[in-house]
Design a protein around this nucleic acid. Structure first.
Lengths: 129, 129
DNA sequence: CGGCATCCTTGCCGATACTG
DNA sequence: CAGTATCGGCAAGGATGCCG
């Protein structure tokens, strides 16, 4: 249980260490983060609601993803001290700014998914001959 | 279970396992693909040049990433039959269309990386107290 | 130079059990 | 309801060696 809150990344090679692109991609690159942000883009949601709307996510990964996003200041967690406890998640202002580039990516996906599938089939076909 | 049709979302049930978004994100979501495409966005490059410009990438991952991109029809591979062999990689027309959403993401990263670092520090600081 | 094949470590992530 | 804790499988990816 050590505290790993050092601000500096482990120094390795020149050029790469402080690359913002990589740092962000390491965070939002996993398949759950984008989906969670996408759902929260529709409005605040409770934990169990998120679980329902993101079909295959496990409880562990949802918690983990939400914690990371909260740590990054992209998601706000609100605990309502009722019985039973109600916890609501929502995007912060910063988190909301992420919706735009994510949507661009999503639109690109939909636009090119067919071309990609075709290219894959052609590639595989050529390889097997 | 009815599909929750929410405004701003691409489809009624966009977060299912085989939706285009997830399929594409599974592919370009890894940290190498985005970097490779980014470098190739500056122009064609040889294998060794890509290795140099993407510092931490191993030969294995570079090859693997390039193969995937080639299979998806996003990258073109050209072998020049010289001695020694020269192999050049470049974006296809489809691949070039990916630069735009990727640039949006990169700009978002640069714009918010400081805020995220600050938020992380604050989060960790609050947790350790 | 630009790979491919192999071994082997790392850590992601699911499954499960327990708490407040 | 909304988590935390722990174990374990398995795939991603690094290291190394060989080839056209």
């Amino acid at each position: 249980m050590e505290t790993m809150q050092v601000d500096g990344v482990i120094d390795g090679d020149p050029y790469h260490a402080d690359c913002p692109t990589r740092r962000i991609l390491d965070r939002i690159g996993d398949r759950w983060t984008v989906l969670v942000v996408g759902v929260l883009g529709d409005g605040d949601a409770r934990f169990s609601e998120l679980r329902r709307r993101i079909e295959r996510i496990s409880q562990k990964m949802l918690t983990q993803t939400l914690r990371s996003l909260e740590r990054d200041g992209l998601v706000r967690r609100t605990v309502h001290p009722e019985v039973p406890v109600r916890v609501e998640y929502g995007l912060t202002d910063t988190g909301r700014t992420l919706l735009e580039p994510l949507r661009a990516l999503r639109e690109w996906s939909i636009e090119h998914v067919d071309a990609i599938s075709t290219a894959q089939a052609a590639y595989d076909d050529a390889a097997s001959s």
